[in-house]
Design a protein around this nucleic acid. Structure first.
Lengths: 285, 285
DNA sequence: AAAACAAATCATTTGAATTGATACTTTACT
DNA sequence: AGTAAAGTATCAATTCAAATGATTTGTTTT
């Protein structure tokens, strides 16, 4: 099976016919007919029902269409990922949860810049689950996420233990307010919900929000409450308006660390980076 | 990019050289050299470092290797999935959680057999998450899983609400015993753990076990406790030795239903099947 | 220095995919 | 019914990209 065949097949389905597909693919009709026929021979399956004029997708075809889409998607990803490696030589692509980026990255990045002056640094913030996927796909060289992460291809080095606290505005009662959280996949989300359950509170409708300062701003004006690392709240520009409540250890303590592919390039820079994190964490303690 | 190129690339990496790869692929050395060179041109990346005699995988190559493996894996899956469709004409492939299979399937299958006499029935038991994957990959026509399932390509029809109860052996204290559960991905697992947390109990080390009767057997001799649908326990051959404790609604009630691809073939048989389930559930109530 | 091994290069060949023309089938219109 | 239009299948001729086999270049090993 070759990808040309799958590209052709997909075009026929999407254009609704062989002639239309041939135009889209800049080739002639007989060519498309032939490629489809060979694909059918190879798979030993009838992909289309021939109806004199026009085709109708057969059951096998529907199945193949799903897989063809996956493969062609993967082909595009492959090409872009491999090209990126070249472009990202001398580049360190770092991912981090937004809270982590705000709290720990700045000083650590300074250390990396000092030790590896030629290295360009890129930082992308996202949720833990998305970051894990991006590291696995070589889209990022490393990422700072809530742990523990257990995966055969990934190394997880625990660096700090983050203390989550409950935050709400002065003069409001969090029990009555909705939970405000990052979008789907946020590692603190499950903690917040588990804690609520444990307290016997129904979980109030959770709002989702994209940015850290945005969440704290909403909370400061009394729109809701959230669970967030203590130091993030203390550093925030809204700190004056916010009330911090401690949370039992089993819900509050989150091991947080760096993940990277076990067979990583740029090991030296990664070491500098993680050392920078632990150094700055110790200074703050 | 074509799959021959990726197959060649993979062979070179795995055999550790172009000559060895050429032998494996039943072709000549210059051929392999050419395919690799063209792949490098197309991707605009150096995949190997040439060291006079022998090659060394370059960073871009490492990335490509990961993706090549994924694609070639997907190619095999594609071929087998498409071939299966042909073979499985006149076949209904059903997946179910083991508990569900024991409890609800038998009578429903009888109904299907009566209405569609020619249809061959296959049943595979697995965990909810695995079953979802298999339905998405067209490996199964439908599956009975713990809901709710929210996915753009899947239809989830809720059929029954399962009541989970705590089970342990007469004369034992479940608080002191380990939790016994199905393997990773079991939908009742998170329930059991959430409930334990809510009660303020530490979650005792969970044991994992493959079969339903196996779990109940272990529990009957006092090895642990578990969370399981009430009717399964009542029907079990070990029922006499087991003690049932009710669990608060928010942890015990599990919406359970049938999933299938929105664009499913064999709609008629699926309807018969789900009707059979609801009919038998009503009879039991 | 010679032998052995591995990869790159290149002229030549081969064959699988493409082309272009033609035949066939259904649908739409008069 | 008759005809035009639109779509697909088939097939001989062609083409071009990939495969071949021999040669060259470079690196280890002895």
């Amino acid at each position: 099976m070759e990808l040309v065949a799958l590209r052709t097949f997909q075009a026929v389905v999407e254009e609704g016919g062989i002639l239309a597909a041939s135009r889209k693919l800049n080739t002639v009709q007989s060519n498309v007919t032939g490629r489809i026929r060979r694909l059918e021979e190879e798979l030993g399956a009838e992909l289309f029902f021939r109806k004199g004029r026009g085709l109708e997708l057969a059951p096998s075809g529907k199945v193949l269409l799903d897989y063809a889409r996956k493969m062609l998607m993967l082909e595009r990803q492959t090409a872009s990922a491999v090209r990126q490696v070249g472009e990202s030589a001398g580049e360190l692509r770092i991912g981090a949860m937004e809270t982590f980026a705000a709290l720990h990255l700045p000083s650590a990045l300074k250390a990396v810049r000092a030790e590896h002056p030629g290295l360009e640094l890129r930082v992308a913030t996202d949720t833990t689950s998305t970051l894990i996927g991006k590291v696995l796909d070589h889209k990022l060289d490393c990422a700072f996420v809530a742990g523990p992460v257990i995966h055969p291809d990934l190394q997880f080095d625990e660096l700090v233990i983050e203390e989550l606290v409950q935050v709400h505005a002065a003069g409001t009662d969090p029990v009555l307010l909705p939970l405000i959280l990052f979008r789907e996949g946020c590692a603190y989300r499950t903690r917040a919900i588990a804690w609520q359950r444990a307290q016997g509170h129904a979980v109030a409708d959770a709002m989702e929000f994209g940015t850290l300062e945005g969440i704290l701003g909403c909370i400061a004006v009394g729109l809701g409450w959230t669970l967030m690392p203590r130091r993030v709240v203390e550093q925030s520009s809204h700190a004056a308006d916010l009330v911090i409540e401690t949370v039992p250890d089993e819900f509050s303590l989150v091991p947080t660390g760096m993940i990277y592919l076990r067979e990583a390039r740029a090991m030296a820079a990664l070491k500098t980076l993680s050392d920078g994190i632990t150094a700055s964490a110790n200074r703050k303690r």
